[in-house]
Design a protein around this nucleic acid. Sequence first.
DNA 1: GGTTGGCTTCGAGTGCGCTCGAAGGCCTAG
DNA 2: CTAGGCCTTCGAGCGCACTCGAAGCCAACC
Lengths: 182, 182
Amino acid sequence: MTAVSTLPETVGIPSAGISSAEPHVHPASRLRSILDSVAAEDGSLPPLNDELVRAMRLPDDLPETLGISEVAEITGITAHTLRYYERIGLVETDRDAAGRRVYDRDALGRIAFVTWLRLSGMPIAGVSRYLELVKAGPDTQDERLALLLEQRAAIVAQLRDLQGALAVVDYKITTYGGTCGA
Amino acid sequence: MTAVSTLPETVGIPSAGISSAEPHVHPASRLRSILDSVAAEDGSLPPLNDELVRAMRLPDDLPETLGISEVAEITGITAHTLRYYERIGLVETDRDAAGRRVYDRDALGRIAFVTWLRLSGMPIAGVSRYLELVKAGPDTQDERLALLLEQRAAIVAQLRDLQGALAVVDYKITTYGGTCGA
DNA sequence: GGTTGGCTTCGAGTGCGCTCGAAGGCCTAG
DNA sequence: CTAGGCCTTCGAGCGCACTCGAAGCCAACC
C-alpha cells in the first residue's frame, strides 16, 4: 500500500534509433547488446518478468556514475538530445561541483524507460504527462494506468500495421524472386 | 519475362493512421474493415498470398471510379494529403473533362501500396525512389529488390523495438495491477 | 600560465509530413 | 440567373522532435 510511484524504472535501453528512417544502425551500444542477448533467449522478448528486468540492469563493471558523453555513447542518444530532454523536463540529473551532469544507474534506467515509451510511438507530451503523474503521487495511479493501457493499445495497433506492411513487402520480395531470380 | 514492373500493386488499404500519436482512430473505412476481416482469419496477417491479395481488392459494388472525397473517406487519407502526394509525384491520377481527379481500382491499389510503405516507416523520399525505379523499367529490379530488403529489415527492427516497448508497458501495467488492483 | 577539450546555457534553425487557406472554376438545383 | 458545393492550384504555415552553433566556464595537462 506504499506509494508505488517510481517502481523499478530501470528497465533497459532500447535501440534509440527512434526515427525509423535510418536502417536502425547507431553507434554500437553496450546496453543494447545486453538487451539483444536477453531478447535472443527466445527471440521475441516475452512479457518482462523480474528476472529479465534484473538481467537488463547495468553490468557491475560500469563506473558508478557517468558523464553525459558516456551516457550518449551507451544509449545512442546524442548529448544534445539528452540536454534537450532535460530542458523540457523529461529527465532530471544531478550535477557535480562544476555544474556538470552526472548520471547514476537510476538515471540511466529512467532514460531507458523514457526511450522505450518514445520508441513505442508515445509523443513527448505523453511521456511528460506520465512522468508528471508519477511525481504527483500515488493518487494518480488510475490515470497512469489508463495512460499505459491506451499506449498499449497504440502499440498493438502499430504491431498490426507493421505486420501488414511486412506481409506486403514480403509479397513483393517473393514475387520479384519468383520472376527475376534474386 | 515480360516487364514485371507494376505487378499487382492492388494490395490493400492500411489503417492510414500514419502518425502514431493518435490512438489509431480515424473515420471508419470500408477497406480497413475488409483488411480487418482478412487479418482476423488467423489474427496475424501471414505472408500475403494470392488469395489474400484477391480478398483485399475492392468489393464489386463500389462505383467503377471515385472522386477525391470518396477516396479520402475510404482510405482515411484527407483530400489535402492525396493532392499533396500527387504534387510530389507519389501518385498519379486521371482527370475528367472538368479537370477533376478520377480514381479507379488500380489507382486505389497504388495508393494502398504507398500507404503500406509509409506505414512501414519508409520516408516519402524512399517511396518516391521505389516508384521511380518501377517507372524506369525492368532493369532496375535489382535495386528495387535491394530497397525492399532494406525496408524489410527496418520493419523487423521496428517490430523488435515495439515488442520490447510492449513488454515494458505490460510490465508496468501488471505491476500496477498487482499493487493497486486494476 | 596557457591551451585544449569537454562541458554549460540558450536561442535559433532544420527536416519531415502534412495541413490549411485563398482565389477561382465548373456543375447542378431552385 | 444565382447560390451552393465540390473541385482546382499554389503557396504558406504548422507541429514535432530534434539539431546545431555561439559564447563562455572549468579542469587537467604540458
